[in-house]
């Protein structure tokens, strides 16, 4: 009988290089699932939030219901939200995506609407005076001017979504949350810490990426600051 190996895995240490090298594929798969779920949710939320915000701006009566419903959705705790969607989606990745979309909606709609409302009326008038139609006005004047506020919402929504994906572990689609969940049941310290740190890294990286994108898309803001 051979003695059990005396490495950091056997000693169940928090920080363990052997864990990183021996579980590389598992970690990579979890990161990919995490990114996939987040990206899909944010993309869908954007596709729904922009028309909602535009509708709320176009028709005044729509503001109350749109903001009210999205706020109520945001108040529902994440675990309950995923659970409420269970009869609709079953134990599937789409459940996690749907839950995250509902969460992101509040932040996105609020911020896009605030950005659109902050466009100065004189700017709108000037564009109209130059013969801009409503579509061209929206696409080339209003949306670019609303971008900073919208991007602020998008950054918060993305960071929150990265962190909320972990709760998806309850239905087996939690990205790195799956590893945290499994690590909890087996008291596997290295796995829990590594997955948690990776989660934070993904959130920070996504935030920085979006900040860079915002700088790229709004060169005028940069020039003003310089």
């Amino acid at each position: 009988m051979t003695a059990p190996p005396d490495d950091c895995l056997a000693r169940n240490e928090w920080i363990c290089g052997d864990y990183l090298s021996s579980r590389r594929t598992i970690l990579w798969d979890a990161v990919l699932q995490h990114l996939h779920l987040t990206f899909l949710a944010i993309l869908l939320a954007l596709l729904i939030a922009v028309p909602l915000a535009l509708a709320a701006r176009r028709w005044n009566w729509a503001v109350g219901p749109v903001l009210g419903i999205t706020t109520i959705l945001y108040t529902i705790p994440s675990l309950a939200m995923f659970s409420l969607l269970l009869p609709l989606y079953g134990l599937a990745a789409s459940l996690v995506v749907a839950g995250l979309v509902l969460y992101s909606l509040t932040l996105l709609v609020r911020n896009i609407l605030a950005g659109l409302r902050a466009v100065p009326e004189e700017t709108r008038q000037a564009a109209r005076g130059m013969g801009y139609g409503p579509v061209r006005l929206l696409l080339t004047v209003e949306l670019p001017l609303a971008l900073p506020a919208a991007m602020a919402g998008l950054r918060i929504a993305t960071v929150s979504a990265v962190s909320l994906v972990t709760i998806g572990a309850i239905v087996g689609y939690g990205g790195l949350g799956n590893l945290i969940y499994a690590g909890m049941n087996t008291f596997f310290k290295a796995q829990v810490l590594t997955a948690s740190v990776l989660c934070v890294i993904i959130a920070v990286a996504a935030d920085l990426l979006l900040l860079g994108l915002q700088r790229l898309l709004t060169p005028w803001a940069r020039e003003r600051r310089a």
């Binding site: 962190s163 972990t166 948690s196 959130a203």
Partner: peptide, 8 residues
């Protein structure tokens, strides 16, 4: 916001 509740 960036740190998952579940992880903590």
């Amino acid at each position: 916001r960036a740190v998952p509740t579940f992880a903590v």
